[in-house]
């Protein structure tokens, strides 16, 4: 087992990603710390194996794009497009993440301690045993789970004050697969067309318990707090909402 540090100060994203690709070819490297990260894009892409990368600073857009294997821990906020088309591995964000987090995500997990921006989980998909998962501790902005086709999206609203509601509108617009769980209040008008509330079954409770326990352990939250309020489950009302649109 071996750890190393890379000072990203002044490095262009291509240089920094090339350096990462180079160091992971040494199978003994299991842990990399990146210091002074200021906006370098695509970090963690193209590494194809399990390695932990701690990012100190603010990673750039499309963090972990197409990522397959690594575990990325961001000590701060992530920008837009984090986990874009990610295939496997994990992103843990000790802060907030930007717009289109988990865009077209195909596998792996994203944990966000605080809030996320617009269109989070847009076009997530699943296939056979591969179920991408996004867990958000805080709240989300509009178009959450837009065109969602698979996977699991959990928004816990832990930082909402008593009585404060989720503000996201157009939740699940165009959603036709996967499951969304919201803890806290949401009105019907906030939901997109084609998505509806469905009762939680045993499998949902087990899944939420597993995810909440892991979130609590990652960010030092009491798991009981998470279950102090019920979750609402949202799911598509039809698997192919537009199936008849061009075939009438």
């Amino acid at each position: 087992m071996s750890a190393l540090r890379i000072d990203a100060n002044g490095l262009h994203y291509r240089e920094l990603n090339a350096r990462l690709r180079e160091v992971v070819t040494d199978a003994r490297v299991t842990h990399i710390d990146l210091d002074n990260v200021y906006g370098q894009r695509y970090l963690g892409t193209d590494l194809h194996r399990a390695v932990q990368i701690d990012i100190h600073g603010t990673p750039g857009n499309d963090l972990a794009a197409f990522m397959d294997g690594p575990r990325i821990i961001v000590h701060g906020n992530a920008q837009d497009g984090c986990g874009n088309t990610m295939n496997g591995g994990e992103i843990i964000i000790h802060g907030s993440a930007g717009d289109v987090t988990g865009h077209s995500m195909r596998g792996g997990k994203i944990w966000v301690r605080d809030n996320v921006g617009y269109r989070v989980g847009i076009h997530m998909k699943e296939y056979l045993e591969t179920h991408p998962t996004i867990v958000i501790g805080g709240t989300a902005q509009h178009f959450l789970g837009e065109y969602m086709a698979g996977g699991v999206l959990v928004v816990m609203g832990l930082n909402l004050a008593p009585g404060e509601r989720h503000i996201a509108n157009f939740v699940g617009t165009g959603m036709h697969g996967g499951k969304m769980y919201l803890r806290g209040e949401v009105d019907d008008y906030q939901l997109g067309k084609g998505v509806g509330r469905v009762p939680l079954d045993d499998a949902d409770h087990i899944l939420l318990h597993t995810l909440a326990t892991e979130y609590a352990a990652l960010f030092g939250v009491d798991v009981q707090t998470i279950f102090s309020q019920p979750f609402v489950k949202l799911a598509p009302l039809s698997l192919r909402p537009y199936g008849r649109l061009y075939a009438y």
Partner: peptide, 27 residues
Amino acid sequence: RLRLRPLVAATAGDRLYISSEEASIRL
């Protein structure tokens, strides 16, 4: 109104920052 382009704001003391990306403010 659909926020199809990014906008991040920040404050520090008497300074207000507006940016397309947070990293540039923190830099």
